[in-house]
Design a protein around this nucleic acid. Structure first.
Lengths: 153, 153
DNA sequence: GATTCATGTAACTCCATCTATTACATTACG
DNA sequence: CGTAATGTAATAGATGGAGTTACATGAATC
C-alpha cells in the first residue's frame, strides 16, 4: 500500500523551519519537501493546532517554530498529525463471535500492540532538538568537502 | 488506511482446516471467513506454494493442511503471503540527497526497523499448533455453557 | 482603500492496494 | 459426459494519501 509520509514530511519541515530565521512559506517548504504547497498546509495544520508551529498570513508570512524543539519529541509530531495507525496489517474483526477469530486475534493483537508500543516509545525518546543537532553535524561534515552549506535541496 | 487482513484470514483458514478431517472447499472457507471464495483461493495460493496446505481439484476436493502445525509459525504464514509490508508509515525517500532528509530518515528508519523486528520475532514465537490448542480451550469453555461445539461461525 | 501575498479549506482528481465479482479454463471423480 | 472443485485473468468497488484547482480570509505595502 501507499505509505503515509506525513510524519516524515512534518519532521522534514520542522527541521527546515528551525534553520531559518524568519517565517517560511508553504511554497518554499513544498520545494524543499518535493510536495504540493496545499498538501504542506494540510499537513502543517495539525502541527499548528498542536501549538508546535505558528502560521502567519499575508506578505512576509509563512510558518515558524512555536516551541522549544528540545521539548518536542517525534511522538508529539505523530500525535499532532492525528496519531494515524502505524500498521498496514490488522485483524479481521474487532468484536468477533467466532472462537477461531478470537484465537487468531488474541495472538495477532498482542504482537501488534507490543510492536506499536515499542515504536511509539522509541519515537518519544527522540527530540527534534536532537534531530536538528544531527542535521548540523551532517551539514558540517559535508561542508568540509564542498564548502557549501546548502542542505535545503 | 485499509488494513491488510490476509494474515488474519489465512490463520483463520488454517485453524478451520486443522479441525476438519477432510478437505474444505473455498466456498465453505469463504462462509467461515466472511469472504469471497475467489479471494480465499487467491490468499491460500501463497500458502499452497509455501507447502503449508494442499489443494485438490474436482469433486470432493478442497483445502487441507499439508504440514505438522507445530512446525509452522505465524511468521511462516506471513512469509508465505509474500511478507507484505507491516507498516502504513514510511520515510519520504530511500536514497535522499538532502541532508535534512537523511537526518529524519535516520531516526525514523531505526525505530521502524526495531518495531518490525520485534513484531516478526513475536510472530515467530507462536506456532499454529499453539493457536489450535488455544482454540480448543475456548471451544471447551464455551461448550460447558452451550453444549454446542460450533466454532465455525 | 486597492493590491499583493500569504494561509485556510473545500472539492475534485489521481493513484495504489485490498477486496469483491464475473468469467472461463483446467482437472478430477463418478 | 456432467458435475464439482481449483486456478487465474479481468474488472469494478472502496479506501486513503497525495496532487490540483478554486476561492475565501487576512495582513502588509503602496
Amino acid at each position: 500500500m501507499n505509505l503515509d509520509r506525513r510524519l516524515s514530511s512534518a519532521l522534514h519541515a520542522l527541521l527546515h523551519l528551525a534553520r531559518r530565521p524568519g517565517p517560511v512559506t508553504s511554497e518554499e517548504l513544498g520545494r524543499c519537501l518535493n510536495a504540493n504547497p496545499v498538501v504542506v498546509r494540510r499537513t502543517m495544520a495539525g502541527l499548528r493546532e498542536a501549538g508546535l508551529v505558528r502560521a502567519e498570513k499575508g506578505r512576509g508570512g509563512g510558518w515558524s517554530v512555536a516551541r522549544d524543539l528540545s521539548t518536542v519529541t517525534v511522538r508529539d509530531v505523530h500525535a499532532a498529525l492525528g496519531g494515524p495507525s502505524v500498521f498496514a496489517v490488522g485483524v479481521r474483526s474487532r468484536v468477533p463471535g467466532c472462537l477461531v477469530e478470537q484465537a487468531v486475534n488474541g495472538a495477532l493483537d498482542v504482537a501488534l500492540r507490543e510492536a506499536e508500543a515499542l515504536l511509539l516509545a522509541r519515537l518519544e525518546q527522540v527530540t527534534l532538538a536532537e534531530l536538528a543537532e544531527d542535521l548540523e553535524r551532517r551539514v558540517l561534515a559535508r561542508g568540509l568537502h564542498t564548502q557549501t552549506i546548502r542542505a535545503s535541496e
